[in-house]
Simulated scan of single mutants.
Amino acid sequence: MIWSSNTSRSVQNPIAQLLDSGNFVVRNANDDNPQNFLWQSFDYPGDTLLPDMKLGRNLLTGLDWYLSSWESINDPAQGDYTFRMDTRGYPQLIVSNVTTETYRTGPWNGLRFSGTLNLKQNTIFEFNFTFNEEEVYYGYELLNSAVISSGYMSPEYAVHGYFSVKSGVFSFGVLVLEIISGKKNRGFVHVDYHHNLLGHAWILYREGRSIELIDASLRNSSYLSKILRSIHVSLLCVQQCLEDRSNMSSVILMLDGEGALPRPKQPDFFAKTNLGDADCSTSKDALSSTNEVTIMLLDGR
């Protein structure tokens, strides 16, 4: 593979690295300062806006950070639709089909874009708008902790009270399975084997019948292969053993990719399951590692 850049800087030992955020960067091996990256994929979002990406413009260099559609479902080349920041007058985001504007968000009013009343602060992500002399952009960040209820608890949190970024991955997997099936994990009990939604999804996957998990309104979708892949990735997210789950950036890449996926191991069927009964190599001390601890801070509003 040959890579080239129009940067005027020279480096002694350039390396390419995929960061945990999902940002693919080219940098000097001895310099991990983001300001000194030679190139980064976050400057070219494609069709997906990840946390910490920017949607806007660098007013100093003229670089546009914008989303673009694929040419087709099988062709990732840039398509006709773009979603970018219009900096003429008060900045706002616009959707365009080639040169025809099809949607405007309205200017930022301090809380949200004036034309997007449904854009509200929530417990999953925090959005932000930055406008200064150097740049203007919209972006979002995931909150310090995932939404946790008795329907989304990871087994290590439910049993031992251990919480980490992998607990958030577990919760994400449950949410995706709920969206695809149209059913809630909490309160779901299959009449034949009395498992919850995770157990039901696992049994159908193991028997090659994952399509039966999909809500009837989605089964004739032209994106059926993507939906089935999402089920597979979700089962990788809800594996009972902490160390078997991928980090969130890997989950996003798997959802958006087409390569072969690893076979998921058994998920946690019940919150009361004893971790000691699972085939987990992670020790109790490893579960409480400070490398992955997430602290939730509550602020009164």
Rank of each mutant, 00 (worst) to 15 (best):
P34K: 07
P34N: 07
Q35P: 01
N36K: 10
F37L: 09
L38V: 09
L38Y: 15
L38C: 07
Q40S: 05
S41W: 05
F42D: 08
D43W: 07
D43P: 10
D43V: 13
Y44R: 13
D47E: 12
T48G: 01
L50Q: 14
D52I: 12
D52H: 14
M53H: 14
M53N: 13
K54A: 12
G56K: 12
R57V: 10
N58T: 06
L59W: 09
T61C: 07
G62F: 14
G62A: 09
L63R: 15
L63I: 14
L63W: 15
Y66L: 11
Y66D: 00
Y66W: 03
L67G: 04
S68W: 09
S68I: 11
S68F: 08
S68Y: 12
S69Y: 00
S69K: 04
S69H: 03
W70F: 08
W70G: 03
E71Y: 02
S72G: 03
S72C: 07
S72V: 03
S72Q: 04
N74S: 08
Q78L: 09
D80N: 06
R84F: 14
T87Q: 05
T87N: 07
P91H: 08
I94L: 08
I94Y: 02
S96A: 15
S96Y: 05
S96Q: 14
V98K: 10
V98N: 07
T99E: 05
T100A: 02
E101W: 03
Y103N: 04
R104S: 12
R104H: 02
T105G: 02
G106R: 01
G106F: 05
P107G: 04
W108S: 06
N109Y: 09
N109M: 12
L111S: 13
F113H: 07
F113W: 02
F113D: 01
S114Y: 00
S114V: 01
S114D: 01
N118G: 12
N118Q: 15
